[in-house]
Design a binder for these strands. Sequence first.
RNA 1: GGGGGUGUAGCUCAGUUGGUUAGAGCGCCAGCCUGUCACGUUGGAGGCCGCGGGUUCGAGUCCCGUCACCCUCGCCA
Length: 598
Amino acid sequence: MLRTHTCGELRPDRIGSQVSLCGWVDRVRDHKGVIFIDLRDRWGRTQVVVGPDADSTTLAAARAARSEWVLRVTGTVGARPEGTTNPKLATGAVEVVCTAIEVLNEAETPVFQPGATDLPGEEVRLAHRWLDLRRAAMQDNLFLRSRIVKIMRDHCDELGFIDVETPMLGRSTPEGARDFLVPSRLDHGSFFALPQSPQLYKQLLMMAGFDRYVQVAKCFRDEDLRADRQPEFTQLDLEMSFVEADDVIGVIEGLVRRTAREILGLDVALPLPRLTYDECMERFGHDAPDLRYGLEIVDLTPLAAESEFRVFRGAIEAGGRVRGIRVPGAAGRFSRKELDELTAVAVEAGAKGLVWLKVEPDGSWSGPVAKNLTGIAAGLQERLGCGPGDLALVVADSFEVTCKALHTLRKRLGAELGLYDPKAMNFSWVVDFPMFARDTESGGWTAMHHPFTAPKPEHLAFLDSDPASCRAVAYDLVINGSEAGGGTIRIHDSATQEKVFKLLGITAEMARERFGFLLDALRSGAPPHGGIALGIDRWVMLFGGLDSIRDVIAFPKTQKASDLMTGAPAAVEPKQLVELGVRVVAPPKPAAPRPEGG
RNA sequence: GGGGGUGUAGCUCAGUUGGUUAGAGCGCCAGCCUGUCACGUUGGAGGCCGCGGGUUCGAGUCCCGUCACCCUCGCCA
């Protein structure tokens, strides 16, 4: 080793020892007679002192040293003179009195200083990611990620899971998300697809008798990006045989508890609350509700039906609903302009408008349509639980639109009014998802989760009679209103699987071609099985209290799925295309210029 | 694909109603400084105002287009 210690570990007990440290120059403070160099590595920072009595070579090296140079410093650990200790630094009671400096590498002036207080824009950070990753905050994020993944692996290992790797090159399945395709060189015109998840492989591992499988699995989905979505992401993917939903849920609850304790020192009470999908939509308008605050949705349809207000009557007569939320004490907090903004939010979410009502100190309603509601005012207030000073927001529309609009409003108000502690962590399960949803384009059925999800045993008959009412043995883990994982018990008999395929519009022929191996395997002794996949990037983001998934991924992509550091994706040599039998139809764009120094 | 935001020095940003030579802090370079730790201090260098077009006597500022990045809707079985 070039060093005896890291830059984060020297303490007064080492005073007098001869040490060597290696690291980057964080800052130089040249006082002419004495020069201070803060040397930084991933462990911390240590002050190196070059005094006037240092030899001329060492003095010259200290004078020459610049930001981000890589040095090996040799010297003696000294106590800092009284009054010059730095309590902000873990190593702040000592310093290394330098006797020799070896410049391991010089560095060009960095585009930005990793130690600077001003955070550069994300474009700059991504283009110079190696510098960005020197920042303590980013290092902390990746350490956190490493710790969480270790907890996950330990947890599963202790429970008898076997870690199996599954292929990155697989077969494209047109259902679900768009695939990333890889052309075959040996079979022109054929393509591999990168896995959206190891779903079928892990089911086959159950059929092979491994009983408990786990993998930290890279997954790929070629869909548009978001603050919490990347085209390649990592899941803790696991599957278990001879289990019911409660067994899988139990394994994950143990992991939640353990992670919360080890990472945050938080004691999570088990079992976690469970809500059904239907209850979630009714109370929160969303299948991944944020339970850190209230603002629950209240159904006002029966009352509204008694009013003469055309907006309400019209929605109800069209088969819709009238629903609202009470915002306690908010009547005085929102100006007309802000209420117009809330209305715009509701409209953006699909509603035709937003009815807002304030309860005045005397208990009367005020608001643009208050006069239309005189007949039911008392009833509405009672149903919503509104009192003087409260604000009520009401939407009349189809059930889906009221869900969307009120969910969006609820989320916004929760954050804007500071209704929860940003450090609070809330874990819950959402269960009993519908098996099927209507495809808005074709009008046919589409799988709410995926086509291998088992229906609740008591709902099997619905597959024939009423698919919309059929509920799945599905469970989503929700953390602070974010979907942090989702799983199901799978279909383990071929007859049910074939029936579900048929419902989804997959003909027997198509099923045989694409999923023949699965159907064969199901007929060759498939155990009852089920599992779950947890979004590791999201877990780290949520446990780290971060807003962007990019901050927990070492080398993430931009919103247009490009890598600003390497320039990927990029055009390839014509020769490569010929080898692959691939012709580009769109005229190739000139390669994007790479950043200076990149 | 739709909606919104941003783009000015290496970095973070300011830039008024369209007006002469585009500013600040940090960083960089040089001088001074023996106890600083966001060192201090003096001076200096550094600009395709994202890019292209237009309006105007005159554009960082107004208009049109375009590109990049961010947020978001659609999408994400």
